[in-house]
Design a protein around this nucleic acid. Structure first.
Lengths: 142, 142
DNA sequence: CTACATGCAAATGCTTTGCAACCTA
DNA sequence: TAGGTTGCAAAGCATTTGCATGTAG
């Protein structure tokens, strides 16, 4: 049996967790790094990545693998869906309850063993919606 | 008005499309590169990436942004869902019809302009299911 | 012909990792 | 004080891009 590692709550780890919780954000590792740096100027980006991974494994936060390249981290570890802005990448919670019966539809219809699902909405955040609208106005009045 | 580029059907582009269609696969750029190389040994990986992007823009194939790091390309450009093996990354179609009314639930409940959604099932493919089962057997009989 | 496409290699962007020094339980 | 953790830098990996050359239409 592999021994369970003891986890330490270091200053770095605690600060990262606090910042995520305070901002209630869906931040990228880099965004978190910039925020943490204000409190711990000598922290390294590698430490941020390692701790986000550890905190996710501990179940205190949630790692999000949404569309696009970068991973984001959610202060809320509970299962819920997200909506992502296709222009700026901003992420928000999607106000819709988890579809717990979705997997049932696949039983017997696939050779895979189903574990779960990921659902993500795509759209435009308010800022980008407005900017897009202005672009169209501009075109039309020319 | 920006002029529309004329698209050429080069040998490289055609070969990539043919291979995707023949294998009916959800292959990564690298997997496609290896297959195309058998027919066009001098093709470069950059060309594969560029053409997959172009073919997706032309609507002949579909770019998939599923969980994990790598992008995959689907010979079938029509809207449908996928199931991905959490162990080996293999992707298959999910036998479930598109949930076309899903966005309706969000109208008025979010400040985002909603454009669409992405749904992906996670599980274990048959091979990995069996391998996992063997691991557990092994543990239990020890 | 000429604009689009290719091959090659270098560059990019995000993330991970090796290692010596450092700290927390 | 043992073993998890950190900072730093280098490496890793998928993907993108600059440029001179090639080619489809």
């Amino acid at each position: 049996m592999p021994e369970k590692k003891t986890r330490r709550m270091t200053r770095q780890r605690k600060t990262i967790l606090d910042i995520l919780r305070q901002t209630k954000s869906h931040a990228s590792a880099d965004e978190i790094y910039e925020l943490v740096r204000k409190q711990l100027p000598r922290i390294s980006l590698g430490t941020v990545y390692r701790n986000l991974e550890v905190l996710a494994k501990m179940g205190l936060i949630q790692k999000l693998e949404l569309g696009g390249t970068i991973k984001r981290f959610d202060w809320n570890p509970n299962k819920h869906y997200h909506i992502r802005c296709l222009v700026c990448g901003q992420v928000d919670d999607a106000p819709i309850a988890p579809l717990n019966q979705l997997e049932d539809e696949l039983y017997g219809a696939t050779v895979f063993s189903i574990i779960g699902h990921r659902l993500e909405f795509e759209g435009l955040c308010p800022d980008c919606t407005e900017k897009e609208a202005q672009k169209i106005d501009f075109k039309e009045t020319n």
